[in-house]
Structure formats: C-alpha cells, structure tokens
C-alpha cells in the first residue's frame, strides 16, 4: 500500500465532519407585524435563506426586501419605495451567533431555549441585536428554529413622516421560523 491510499481518507474525514454540522434553508419564513390603533400592517417572506453552523454557532440570514408580501398592494409599494428603498438596499441580513445548544441536544428530540446575538443590516444600516429563540428537534431529527424580536425603524435610518406616524408602530414585531435541513 502506498502512502497515497493510506492517507487520503484521513484528509476527507474533517471535511465530512464540518459539513455535517451545518444546517441551511432557502425557504425560511420571516414575518412582521406593526400594530397601532389606526392600522395593522402584516407582511411575510417565505424565501429567506439561512445557514447555521452548529459546531461554531455561527448563524446567518439573508432575505430580499421585495419578497415581502402584504395584503394591500399599495402598502407593499410604499414599503419598498418610501421606507425600505429596496432598489438601493435590496437585502436585509443577519450575521451572528446562536448559543445554548450543543451536539448532544441536537441528537435528541426536545425544545431548547437558545440565545442569539449579532448584527442586523437593514436599509443599509447595521444594528446589533440580542434576543432569545427556540430550537425544536422532533422525533425524526428535523430542526426548527424560531424567534420573535422587535425592530425599530428609526434604528435603521427609516424616516416615517408625521402624517403617517400614527399608523406605523415605533417597534415592529418580527417573527422568524426556519425549518433547517442538513447541508
């Protein structure tokens, strides 16, 4: 047996290990609610991409602003044109870390409270966030991660004119639900 065949598998093992710890989705769900006495605004996006590296805890999200669907067509147009300026800033992203769960927990069914910390880039403006979420592992090993947290438009340089100030909440509730699959 020559050196080549002897050592080749050794180099492949770490590669395989890294890949196994990673989870991803391209159909993640993000929705938001703005609630004021005058108007409720809801929108959802079912095309969110996310990758979670369970080994390092690294977590990322990326979504197209234009993919948010509203009930009212005009709201969607205003959202893109007047507030998010989605032609200039087409994507919203998150980069950070998810902690509070390890390989042992992922191996057995259950719901685990985790904490998430990182940076949201929205409307071209970065803002660090810290929130809690849950990771649910079902009997078949399927992994779902959820979280709910507020975003304040003014933190991201989104100006809301006085005329509609009373129709848009100061803190907008964002809900995230990701059904991950192994990479």
């Amino acid at each position: 047996m020559n050196l080549r065949t002897k050592f080749l598998p050794l180099f492949l093992i770490p590669l395989a290990l890294t890949a196994q710890d990673r989870y991803m989705t391209r159909t993640g769900h993000v929705e938001f609610h703005s609630s004021t006495p005058l108007e409720d605004i809801d929108a959802e996006n079912d095309k969110v991409t996310s990758v979670w590296d369970a080994a390092s805890g690294a977590l990322e999200f990326s979504m197209l602003i234009k993919a948010f669907a509203f009930e009212k067509a005009l709201m969607q147009e205003h959202f893109n044109e007047d507030y998010m300026e989605s032609t200039t800033f087409p994507k919203a992203t998150f980069k950070g870390k998810l902690s509070g769960i390890g390989a042992d927990e992922l191996a057995k069914a259950g719901t685990y409270i985790v904490s998430v910390e990182g940076t949201i880039t929205l409307h071209g403006v970065e803002k660090s966030v810290k929130t809690e979420g849950t990771v649910t592992v079902d009997a078949h090993g399927a992994i779902q991660a959820t979280s709910t947290f507020p975003i304040r438009p003014e933190d991201h340089g989104i100006r809301i004119p006085g005329l509609v100030r009373t129709k848009i909440a100061e803190a907008i509730e964002v809900k995230v639900r990701m059904d991950y699959r192994k990479m």
Binding site: L15, R26, A58, E60, F61, L64, E81
Partner: peptide, 27 residues
C-alpha cells in the same frame, strides 16, 4: 478548505447564488 470553512464568516456566500425568482420593477 477545512481552514477556510472554519474561518470564513460568510456562510451564505458559500452556498452560492441561487437563481432568484423573477422580480418585477414596480412604481
């Protein structure tokens, strides 16, 4: 590769660009 996989923080970038659904110009 192992090194880069651990060090690189652009996880989504590694997925490669997916062909996006048509996005129509509005307004």
């Amino acid at each position: 590769m192992i090194h880069s996989a651990h060090a690189q923080d652009d996880l989504i970038g590694q997925l490669g660009e997916e062909k996006s659904a048509p996005v129509y110009s509005t307004a």
